[in-house]
Design a protein around this nucleic acid. Structure first.
Length: 545
RNA sequence: GCCAGCGUAGCUCAGCCGGUAGAGCAACUGAUUCGUAAUCAGUAGGUCCGGGGUUCGAGUCCCCGCGCUGGCUCCA
């Protein structure tokens, strides 16, 4: 509907213009928001091409937090351009320009965009358009676009959008393609929503674990020892110990056995596991006496060695091996981020070897454990994703038809039995088996992927794992990978941000601080502190003046 | 890795057109013992990320490294 003063979305409808020229009203808030953002991105493109006429257009979609537009231009955009662009957008908007659609033939469109030198658009049209296609004109900007768009820029509230940041990107997202300059912005249907979004960004900055980690003296990363490698300070390590002890006790209670495996192994192990072939780019490889070794990027082959160290009977199963295993993986320098994305980290890893009959119970117990752990750390909201294979590309997956059905039945059955809600992700499974991922939602609503339960149909075969069944024959066990916290480093980062640094008492690195009132109470304060610490409290004595 | 930006005291930052480095907080010393973050006085602290170069002279300009930050997945 048209609200007052130019008319905006008022929780009822957004007036839009479809490509065929008809007017419509979009009432679905999600759809309206997407159209609104997409239109704002065109407005931004119009502002940019008007300020910098030598700029050519890439694409400019709405995305989950706003929108972006990719541009091709010789000179670089700088931070200082952003306010100028924003101002220009408001200026254009005040003229109440219409989004004018037009249907043209493919040839006509190619001519039009070629003339304008918009070669990227021409490429897109050649690839994607049918015989007839639609373009929208906004002021001097003509863009190849299916629409719909808001009817006119008057429907865009000048206080509902912001131009936020610059980034590099690649044409069609492929790093082999030419580089483009991306400008990000965000828009909301109302200025209030924009304001609360900006406040949330501010809140996220306030909680940044990199800042809090330094201020609370929890951890650091030294340029000299290397990027992506965490140095745990005493206070951080204290929290880590609490986490590990809590987890260890719980796992022992639930029938896990702890194992410990070496950090390096001959490449032969990684050839058998398949990592050497498929995971090579992420592995650190080095030589000892002319023989190649690998620093472990995963713990599974080690656990498998222990399983294989002797003959196993069905009476031994299920076997649950757990390890806080430190692994190293090469990550591109540009993706490293505090504790959340690192090159060396400790997984709270475990592998379960069991019979097909035991799978359902194992998964049920596992999901129960996941929920217990999450609740213990103060997370009560989560999302669960069940990733299954792409039915149309069965050939790309390991395991038999029967394996996949058995696994999926067990996963779904277990989720049902404990009343868990999940989302089914078709085609998201890894090639070696289906999985369940648990994403928890933190204090300010952000999802974090932590727990994962994965079937593995390849490793038991590659390592020829077996157990002797009641029939006296050898059978192949089912193997499950599972992590609860994922990586301790990453989990610590998430905890810091979730609690904004204010840990609950059982996790807090310092549980009590004793402060003497004056010089003459010092000795007494020290006694109080040592008494508390004797009782197992993490105490500090602050006897500064 | 690629694109853009950044890298000055422990932290946050200032340092204009190149002339040889500064503030606040923190630290330390002394005074103060005062009811809820920052009392007063003083002291110390910097290979201006590293390495080359231009220059009489470089934190400031150029080149090469290293690191950090935001992106590089959302598809007309």
């Amino acid at each position: 509907m048209q609200g007052r003063g130019g008319g905006r979305f008022t929780a009822m409808a957004l007036r839009v213009r479809y490509a065929d020229g008809t007017l419509g009203e979009v009432t679905d808030p999600g759809e309206a928001l997407e159209i609104y953002r997409h239109s704002t991105s065109h407005l931004m493109a119009a502002a940019v091409t008007s300020l910098y006429p030598e700029t050519h257009l890439g694409i400019g979609p709405a995305v989950s937090d706003g929108f972006y537009y990719d541009f091709q231009r010789e000179a670089s955009f700088g931070e200082e351009d952003l306010p100028l662009i924003e101002r220009k957008m408001r200026e254009l908007l005040s003229r109440d320009l219409r989004f004018e659609p037009r249907i043209v033939s493919k040839e006509e469109a190619i001519d039009l965009f070629s003339q304008k030198g918009e070669h990227l658009k021409v490429e897109l049209i050649r690839e994607k358009a049918g015989e007839r296609l639609s373009c929208y004109r906004l002021g001097d900007l003509v863009d190849f676009c299916t629409g719909p768009h808001v009817d006119s820029t008057g429907l865009i509230d000048p206080d509902s959008f912001r131009v936020l940041s610059l980034a590099g990107s690649h044409w069609k997202g492929d790093e082999r393609n030419q580089r483009l300059q991306r400008i990000y912005g965000t828009a909301f249907l109302t200025p209030e929503e924009l304001r609360s979004y900006m406040e949330q960004l501010e809140e996220a900055r306030r909680r940044d674990h990199r800042r809090l980690g330094r201020e609370l003296d929890l951890f650091s990363i030294s340029e000299e020892s290397g990027p992506g490698l965490i140095l745990w300070h005493p206070k951080g390590a204290r929290v880590r110990l609490v986490i590990e002890n809590f987890l260890r006790d719980e796992l022992l209670r639930r029938g896990y056995e702890f194992v410990s495996t070496p950090h390096i192994a001959r490449n032969a192990l990684w050839r058998t596991s398949g990592h050497y072939e498929y995971y090579r780019e992420n592995m650190y490889v080095f030589e000892i006496e002319d023989e190649e070794f690998v620093i472990k990027p995963m713990n599974c082959p080690g656990h498998i060695q222990i399983y294989r160290s002797r003959m196993r009977s069905y009476r031994d199963l299920p076997i649950r091996y757990a390890e806080f295993g430190t692994v190293y993986r090469y990550e591109k320098s540009g993706v490293l981020h505090g504790m959340l994305r690192v090159r060396g980290f400790t997984q709270d890893d475990a592998h379960i070897f069991c019979t097909r009959d035991q799978v359902y119970n194992e998964i049920t117990a596992l999901l129960d454990l996941v929920l217990f752990i999450m609740k213990s750390f103060g997370f009560d909201k989560y999302k669960v994703e069940l990733s299954v294979r792409d039915e149309s590309k069965k050939k790309n997956y390991a395991g038999t038809e029967d394996d996949w059905r058995m696994a999926e039945d067990a996963l779904i059955g277990a989720m049902r039995s404990i009343g868990m809600q999940w989302e089914r992700m078709e085609g998201e499974a890894v090639f070696y088996g289906p999985k369940i991922d648990v994403k928890l939602i933190d204090a300010i609503g952000r999802p974090w992927q932590l727990s994962t339960v994965q079937f593995d149909f390849t490793l038991p075969k590659r390592f020829a794992l077996a157990y002797i069944g009641p029939d006296g024959q050898a059978h192949q066990p089912v193997m499950l990978h599972r992590a609860l916290l994922g990586s301790i480093e990453r989990f610590m980062g998430v905890l810091i941000e979730h609690y904004a640094g204010a840990f609950p008492i059982w996790l807090a690195p310092v549980q009590a601080v004793v402060i003497p009132i004056s010089e003459r109470h010092r000795a007494y304060a020290a006694r109080v502190a040592s008494r508390l610490s004797g009782e197992g409290m993490r105490v500090e004595l602050d006897d500064r003046n």
